[in-house]
Amino acid sequence: APSRLDMTAIPAHVFNESPASTPTATTPKVKGPPMKVIEDFSSIEYPPEFLAPKARDPVTGKISYDSAFLKQFQVLCLDTDEDLSAFQSIGGDDSQGGHDNRRGSNR
């Protein structure tokens, strides 16, 4: 039977889903004009399968949302037009692609 391949010489970053591309290779994000925000929450009819926000306090006018309402956005708002390229190399696991000794041993 074939034995397991010895892959110890291959740096860990090779196995990562996202290639360690350089930030300069990506197109800069272009931000459009800011979208309108809801002024009058009572004018919005939320689809029945979603929780509606309590939103604005009638006395103080302050806007608040509980966590259950906010968590509904998690699967809906997947993209951003913000430039996060400064962030691309901060992951401890998949930045740099170096050969330090921690790699492999603690996976």
């Binding site: 925000v37 949302y65 708002c77 993209d79 962030f87 401890g92 998949d94």
Partner: peptide
């Protein structure tokens, strides 16, 4: 906005993957 927060949060490194 709530939408902008999630857009950013969904595209940055998770805490358990930070150096």
């Amino acid at each position: 906005t709530v939408e902008d927060f999630w857009g950013v949060h969904n595209n940055i490194v998770k805490v358990n993957h930070l150096e």
